[in-house]
Design a protein around this nucleic acid. Structure first.
Lengths: 241, 241
DNA sequence: GCCGATTTGTCCGTATGTATC
DNA sequence: CGATACATACGGACAAATCGG
């Protein structure tokens, strides 16, 4: 059984664009035509279209139509974007991958940790550090702090597989919002020890706070990437000031 | 005269959140209450709210309410996000700034340039390189390629001020969509020559293609940042697979 | 555990405004 | 000018989740 109607239409149109049914520079069928094609209301069509706009697939032009601006990417990078897990990215790129847990302990949030993570002082956290290997090279160092009260009995064994799969499937938790910041930092002692930096003295660092469907922030993470395989894509639309 | 109703409400609510009228963790007034407060339909309220969701200000929880997840940032970084110009960022952070044009010439798109920029072979482009100074330090190297047919008679003098102001105010052009990619690259000869790298051997590189309201891609840009002052913020929401 | 009130999520239909051609 | 297409706004209906009694 499908999800919602607008999402079905959104996916269908997205696939069509990706498969080249509608080409770069062309206009999509008009909203009225789409109403006929999908047998639904105008609102539903517009909702589906706005999803494509957010994805940078199309751009609507007042009085003219909705134009395709999707271009298939030539480079098959190891990219992160949206909220995609390490495992999903690796599989999408057909890379062999492995994860090693190098830290797994419970800590109490003190002043410094509170300032860094955004959790209140005194909160019990699970501190996990993992090294991610792609095709045998140590490329990512993940430092996670999870709310102990939420992740329950997460084990190192689970952490070596996918923590997100555990959270979503086993705990039935839904990840909704993730606030991220991307910076570039000089490699620290810990980075040098665990990663194959290949001569780089810097890393791409993605720091994020993640919220679940209950609206509670349950995770603070730093993902420290060797620069070579890091790439972040994004589409921005300018809101009128 | 104001823009649209939903945008007015969006801005109003956004300001209230920023000013602390609604605090982190609290719920906004219910949609029904907001309808009364703003004297409008439910759709209009929901549209305003969805803007706040996109900004990572709030998160709606089915059956419960709309929760504030906005936290005022302590660090006053030089950040880029949305489509903000160099000038806007500098002013927001109260930095003195200056721009020097180090290249300004017309080129014809060959195979290599087409591959890099996404413009078709044979297109006439304006190639501009500028060094951006913040508080006297050379921190950003901007490499722009503009569609010659669109930017018309852009001059080096204008380029030293704000190109975007020229495009928007003088040409009446509206920037709508920008596709961006963030990577980390080793500093090249050109970077070393023009930037104060402060010992870093890497740069944060933002590569973007920008579309105007006519749906034509008129700009390809590489913004090469000294890492120290680079920070990119973003809020992602997970779409159900 | 059930029920009803509240709240958000989805969907529909209609009307009017505005830009393009 | 008229036809077409997107933008905004309103109103109503029902579903689904949450919460308190």
């Amino acid at each position: 059984m499908p999800k919602s109607k607008f999402e079905e239409i959104y996916r269908n149109l997205k696939n069509k664009v990706e498969q080249g049914d509608y080409l770069y520079g062309e206009l999509l069928p008009s909203e009225n035509t789409l109403i006929g094609m999908y047998d639904c209301s105008r609102n539903t069509i517009r909702r589906a279209l706005s999803g494509l706009v957010e994805d940078g697939y199309v751009q609507s032009i007042h009085g003219k139509g909705v134009q395709v601006i999707y271009q298939p990417s030539v480079k098959k990078d190891f990219t992160i974007g949206g909220i995609e897990t390490f495992r999903e990215s690796a599989q999408r790129n057909n890379f062999s991958y492995e994860t090693r847990v190098i830290r797994f302990q419970t800590v109490l949030t003190d002043e410094a940790l509170a300032d860094r993570t955004g959790f209140p002082v005194g909160t019990e956290l699970l501190w996990v550090e993992r090294v991610r290997y792609l095709n045998g090279k140590a490329l990512i160092l993940d430092v996670n702090f999870f709310l102990k009260s939420v992740v329950g009995d997460l084990t190192p064994e689970i952490a070596e597989q996918s923590i997100y799969a555990y959270l979503e499937h086993d705990l039935g938790m839904q990840i909704v919002t993730s606030k991220r910041e991307i910076t570039v930092e000089r490699a620290a002692e810990n980075d040098r020890r665990h990663l194959d930096l290949n001569g780089y003295d810097c890393l791409a660092v993605v720091t994020s706070n993640t919220f679940n469907s209950d609206g509670i922030m349950f995770e603070y993470t730093q993902s420290r990437h060797q620069p070579e395989f890091f790439s972040f894509r994004d589409t921005a639309t300018r809101k009128k000031s």
